[in-house]
Design a protein around this nucleic acid. Structure first.
Length: 137
DNA sequence: GCCAACGTTGGC
DNA sequence: GCCAACGTTGGC
């Protein structure tokens, strides 16, 4: 099982919106970046993903699960992909970008290195560390 | 195939 | 609202 981080502008699609969809898989739409698309291509059902709010919030707010691996986006011509996700758990304590940047163990996270990438891989140690930060404080 | 110009993203 | 970083586009 792999770990990911999905970024979204909460004004467009928020964790609350995702939760409102319940356990029905919801397509993760709008990815129009080749690198992000390439990551989506390798996503599998059962993978887990941090749900990150950009803009004013800039924090990881929840954990989502991939319920359907990559499939072609029917709404656009070309080589674009979708995956379906469900909201799984809200983080007891959201983990802010500032907290991630302040944590030396997370200095190599893609979120720190390349904050513009909208679909990011997360390593297992990074995942564990962020989860620990999310349950602490 | 290179690279300058341009548009977009997202943190600050 | 600004601007740095990055990706994409298009002329050559």
């Amino acid at each position: 099982m792999a770990f990911w981080l999905l970024k979204t502008e909460p004004g467009d699609w928020s964790w609350q919106d995702q939760c409102a969809r319940g356990t029905a898989g919801e397509p993760w739409t709008g990815v129009r970046n080749a690198q992000a698309r390439n990551h989506m291509r390798t996503m599998k059902k059962g993978d887990q993903a941090f749900f990150y709010h950009t803009g004013k919030e800039r924090r990881i707010v929840g954990i989502a699960e991939i319920t359907r691996g990559a499939y072609p986006d029917p709404d656009i011509s070309g080589d674009w992909l979708l995956v379906d996700i469900v909201a799984r758990d809200a983080l007891p304590t959201p983990v802010s970008l500032a907290a991630i940047k302040a944590e030396p163990a997370l200095s190599e996270m893609v979120l720190v290195r390349n904050p513009r990438l909208s679909v990011q891989p997360v390593t297992a140690p990074e995942w564990k560390k962020v989860c620990a930060m999310a349950s602490a404080e």
